[in-house]
Simulated scan of single mutants.
Amino acid sequence: MPYEWIDTANQSGDRPAEIELHCWPYRSLPRRDMVLFIGATAVLISLPLIVVLGSPILWGLLPFFLIALGAVWYALERSYRDGEILEELHLTPDEIRIDRHNPRGPDQHWDANPHWVQIALDHKDGPVENYVTLRGAGREVELGAFLMPDERAALYSELKQRLDAVRT
Rank of each mutant, 00 (worst) to 15 (best):
E84L: 04
E84H: 03
E84A: 04
E84F: 01
I85Q: 08
I85H: 12
L86V: 11
L86R: 06
E87L: 12
E87Q: 14
E87W: 10
E88I: 15
E88F: 08
E88V: 15
L89Y: 09
L89H: 09
L89A: 10
H90L: 14
H90P: 06
H90K: 13
H90S: 11
L91R: 11
L91T: 00
L91K: 10
L91E: 08
T92Q: 04
T92S: 04
T92M: 00
T92R: 09
T92K: 04
P93K: 04
D94M: 05
D94Y: 00
D94T: 09
E95W: 00
I96L: 06
R97G: 04
R97P: 04
I98P: 12
I98F: 12
I98E: 10
I98Y: 12
D99K: 12
D99G: 11
D99V: 14
R100K: 15
R100P: 08
R100F: 13
H101P: 02
H101W: 02
H101T: 02
H101R: 04
N102K: 08
N102Y: 05
N102E: 06
P103A: 06
P103S: 08
R104M: 05
R104E: 07
G105N: 02
G105S: 01
G105D: 02
P106G: 08
P106K: 09
P106R: 06
D107A: 14
Q108P: 02
Q108F: 15
Q108E: 15
H109D: 10
H109G: 06
H109T: 10
W110F: 09
W110H: 03
W110A: 05
D111F: 08
D111N: 11
A112K: 11
A112D: 12
A112F: 05
N113Q: 03
P114E: 08
P114L: 07
H115T: 00
H115G: 01
H115R: 00
H115M: 00
W116T: 04
W116N: 05
V117F: 05
V117P: 00
V117T: 00
V117I: 07
V117D: 01
Q118I: 14
A120F: 11
A120D: 13
L121Y: 05
D122R: 07
D122P: 06
D122T: 01
H123P: 03
H123L: 09
K124Y: 14
D125H: 11
D125C: 02
D125I: 05
D125P: 05
G126M: 06
G126D: 07
G126S: 08
P127C: 08
P127Y: 07
P127F: 09
E129Q: 06
E129D: 05
N130D: 07
N130W: 04
N130E: 08
Y131K: 11
Y131E: 12
Y131M: 10
V132A: 06
V132H: 10
L134R: 01
L134I: 07
L134S: 01
